[in-house]
């Protein structure tokens, strides 16, 4: 599995640390309900097929990236900077 970092280019999967589903970018407000925090920390759509998850380019540039992948074929479809997703610059 190879991932194309927007800053470094195509790299071996071993350079990246997997954190979890990209829902982790949608952190609830401090005083949000138990349900909101449960949804953020624990509950997952867990799709068989296309998914978006958060990775860290640990052995590269140190950027957090959102990777669009297929969980059934292991194909990597897209990779963008997490900061662009969080700011709304990228969907």
């Amino acid at each position: 599995m190879r991932i194309t970092c927007p800053l470094c280019g195509e790299r071996d999967r071993r350079e990246f640390y997997y954190q979890g589903a990209a829902v982790l970018l949608e952190r609830p407000a401090f005083d949000a309900s138990d349900e909101a925090w449960d949804g953020y920390l624990h509950l997952r759509d867990n799709p068989a097929g296309k998914t978006r998850d958060l990775w860290y380019h640990e052995a590269g540039c140190g950027a957090w990236v959102v990777v669009t992948r297929d969980t059934v074929t292991h194909a990597v479809l897209d990779c963008v900077l997490a900061s662009d997703v969080a700011s709304g610059a990228r969907p």
Partner: peptide
Amino acid sequence: GRSGQVAAMAGLRLPIES
């Protein structure tokens, strides 16, 4: 491993990642 998908048939979202 298929718990998330089958539970989704009942409208449930589980604390599970496969």
